[in-house]
């Protein structure tokens, strides 16, 4: 292998809450080989130039969802984005957009965690079932109705992509709605009506203006935009037909 190392400039958004009043960019010259990801680039910086550089990562193979960053302004998992694709230009790495920065590339995800909890992300059975009744039987068709929406790894790239979440942080947002849809579509679940209160609320699906960028940046092809749009239709039906439903729909 002809491995004379090339040098790429990595521009990193730094923010140290103890000393900085606002984030600023710093440039590092990083030697890299063709197999090095952007994550490995920032790891190189931490190991060799500045040990205080802070970022989240774990699996290095696009399944843990920890290493999301803005890379040249686009939300991406840094472990599956390669430095060679930016060379010889400079690559800019910033904390995910629309989230408060805690330190350097680490953002505060507590708002997102709250949203995940609020959608009741677990199966709420239609009716209580005894052990004697045995397991739930699900047809391939019923399985296919929700399986796509189970692939979310909570990387929140879709939130960094969503202009409406950027404008209104109360919006439940793409990933949480995709997961909500995953449980609503599960034949074992019976809580779609309970979840409708959130879907139809002012924090719900109607914040979305169908930009579709969330689905574009999703590394797992969950297609949250589709889940949001299906639930707009569901919420509109609930709005107009709630007076006809025997239970009166959600509040």
């Amino acid at each position: 292998m002809s491995d004379t190392k090339k040098i790429i400039e990595i521009e990193v958004l730094r923010y140290q809450p103890e000393s900085d009043t606002e984030p600023h960019l710093e440039v590092y010259k990083v030697p890299f080989s063709d197999d090095m990801s952007v994550l490995q680039g920032v790891q190189y910086i931490k190991d060799n130039f500045d040990g205080s550089l802070t970022f989240r990562w774990s699996c290095r193979m696009a399944i843990c969802g920890s290493c999301g960053m803005m890379i040249n302004g686009i939300p991406k998992l840094s472990c599956e984005t390669f430095l060679r694709d930016y060379y010889p230009n400079r690559v800019r790495v910033e904390a995910m957009a629309h989230f408060p920065i805690e330190k350097d590339l680490v953002v505060d995800l507590s708002g997102f965690i709250g949203k995940l909890e609020s959608i009741q992300p677990y199966i709420i059975p239609r009716e209580a079932r005894s052990l004697e009744q045995g397991e739930y039987i699900q047809s391939p068709e019923q399985f296919n109705a929700y399986i796509q929406f189970t692939s979310c790894i909570n990387c929140t790239l879709c939130y960094a992509a969503c202009p409406q979440f950027g404008l209104n942080p109360d919006f439940i947002g793409p990933a949480a709605i995709a997961l909500l849809h995953r449980y609503n579509m599960d034949s074992r679940d019976g809580a779609a009506e309970q979840r409708m209160e959130l879907v139809a609320s002012e924090e719900g699906v109607f914040n979305c203006s169908a930009v579709g960028y969330c689905s574009e940046v999703c590394p797992k092809h969950v297609d949250p935009a589709n889940a949001v749009n299906i639930n707009k239709t569901n919420a509109a039906k609930d709005y107009f037909l709630r007076f006809l439903s025997p239970k009166g729909g959600s509040k």
Partner: peptide, 16 residues
Amino acid sequence: MKSGLKRSNAPIFWSL
């Protein structure tokens, strides 16, 4: 589930 949620009137405008 969150409490104090207000139902959005968006469906009227969104349907039109």
